[in-house]
Amino acid sequence: MAKTVHQDQRYLVALLNNDAGLINEIYKKSAGKVKSFVIFNNGTANDAEDIFQEALVDIYNQAKYKDLQLTCPFEPFLLLVCKRKWLNTLKKKSVLQVTNSEDDLLLIGEDTFEQAEQLADQAAQSEIFLKAFEKLGERCKEIIKWSMQGDAQEKVAEALGVTYGYLRKKKSECMASLIKLVQVNK
């Protein structure tokens, strides 16, 4: 059964529309909390800034390219995504003492965990696909990269100095090579 979309979906729409007023509201509510959490757990304000931006970009990407529908409230979702990101960073640095404030996580619904999990999986997969993409030939990389810039494909063809028909043909071939690369490495 499809879950109902939470009213906080409006924050995702704000990210997509680059709506400074609502984005400011997101920062006002959550930036301080993320900053305290990171600083309390062996980080700096700069680390917190990076984590916060990464989380927002991940959410933006998921909303823009995979049509993310929020079924949980936005703020706990964002905070959970940030916490996980920071805990992962610490794990990589193998700093073990982490004050894991599980008590406040208890207040978070199952939906929030599920969506945060999906977001993390998606980000990891994008990383894998990018690595496969890097292995393609220069011409293929150029064609795929340009065609993904969001501009009309006719314009892309013009910029690359090829016909629209050629662009479609070449992109299909390049994307097929990419997908084979991904499947081989699975």
Partner: peptide
Amino acid sequence: IHQSLKMKLA
């Protein structure tokens, strides 16, 4: 794969 890669390239 197309949309996931777009997240990185767009």
